Simulated scan of single mutants.
Amino acid sequence: MGGLWGRRIAPVLAVAIGIGLVGCSGQHGDSDPGAKGSAPTSTTAVAPPVSPVDTFGWDPCGYLTPELYADVADHDPATGLPRVQIDPVDFDLCEVHIVVPGPTYHEISVASNKRQTPPTPGVYDNADRYSVAADGDWTVVTQKQENMGSCLRAVYSAQSAVTITSSQDTFEKALPVDVCDLTDRAEKALVAALHANSVPRLSFPADSLGRTDSCALLTDAEITANVALPGWNPPAARHPGHFCLWQATESTAPANMPVISPFQSKYNLVSLMPGLNKPAASGRTVTIAGVPTVLSGGTQSCTATVAGRTWQPWPGKQVYQARYPQPDTLVESLQLAVVLADTGDACQAVQNLAEKAWPRLR
């Protein structure tokens, strides 16, 4: 594999839908990795049973269409089409950008993100905040009302899960847009596709990172030999996943540690994260295990980013009807990240782990 791969580490703050399979990561990546709880407390049988499926090869944008938001979006005066962009960000993440009418430019985002791991047990147990209903082998979660410009939906099972969160920034909160309605539309489209078994799948060639199981690139022993993960326990089972996370559940951060980075965490973690866009990684280029790698970071957080296949055209769904032109190319990427709760040598840990992981990409 040649080239350089790029991918951001920051989470998407938008209307986000995440889909996952059980056990690829040690934690799902919720805001509190130590969260505990029991099974959903409210279940109601609706519709015919829907069997869990392997989402690894799904087209992340496959079930989303501009028509879902045609009545919300501005329309192009020349074409009459809704100004909606459907943009694959990686093998799991799809972003839908909706330009809303008005004298100034405003855009609302919907992000569909599939993860190969279920949510943390108990995370949706707050009956005052969520309603939970059974749909065959799936569970559908609805956040009852918008909270500070955000809304959430989730669809999950023992093997796969869909979470839908929406948020608006300060400038967009005054817009007459119901963010919970936006999440409802995406959730209903997904559930309908599950019932019809109509979510498109992508078939990747041998040289594509789309075939790579990130959770198989490193062993648990290799991770913990380089990064301490207090409180973390390996999952009972792992399924193939493009994204993989190993995260401590006990904090080692000093009580008076100042916030010096947007990626700072109270918990040590290691992640492998795909990308599918023009490489934007900044840092120095080094060679690790014979692979050109962009190394970026310092003592507390560091990433190693490598590049794979270049796509044009992308074989999955892309729709460009908003203000952004279609990219000339989409470049596959994989980013290995280490984030430490206290000062250490994150870049050395990243390089040590990359020495193990990169040869397994071939």
Rank of each mutant, 00 (worst) to 15 (best):
C61A: 09
P315D: 04
R83Y: 08
N197C: 08
A161V: 06
L64F: 07
G298E: 02
V46F: 07
A354W: 07
N268A: 07
L202Y: 05
P66G: 04
G2T: 13
A221M: 08
G20L: 07
A248I: 12
E355M: 15
A248Y: 11
G283E: 01
A248H: 12
P240Q: 06
R309T: 10
L330D: 05
R8G: 15
A289S: 15
L353R: 00
T219M: 01
T219A: 00
R309I: 11
D181V: 00
I17G: 02
V110Y: 01
D54L: 05
P292D: 02
H242N: 12
T65Q: 03
S150N: 13
C244T: 05
H239D: 00
G241V: 07
I19G: 10
K188I: 06
P40K: 05
L217A: 04
L190F: 10
T170Y: 03
L21F: 06
A16K: 01
G80I: 11
A35M: 11
M257F: 10
P11L: 10
A281M: 14
Y69E: 01
V294D: 05
Q85A: 11
K356C: 04
S150Y: 02
L218D: 12
M1W: 07
L245V: 12
G20I: 10
R284E: 08
G275Y: 03
C347K: 04
D137I: 11
L229M: 07
P279C: 03
A354M: 12
R115P: 06
S31Y: 14
S51N: 14
N352R: 15
S166E: 00
N226Y: 04
A186R: 03
A253H: 05
H106Y: 04
A14N: 09
P33C: 10
P279T: 06
P176E: 01
G136L: 10
E146N: 01
W5C: 15
P274T: 11
S333N: 06
T249N: 13
G344L: 10
L269N: 08
A39P: 10
V12G: 06
L269G: 01
G283K: 01
R83A: 08
R8T: 09
L152P: 00
Q159P: 03
D74V: 03
S25D: 09
V338M: 03
K266F: 14
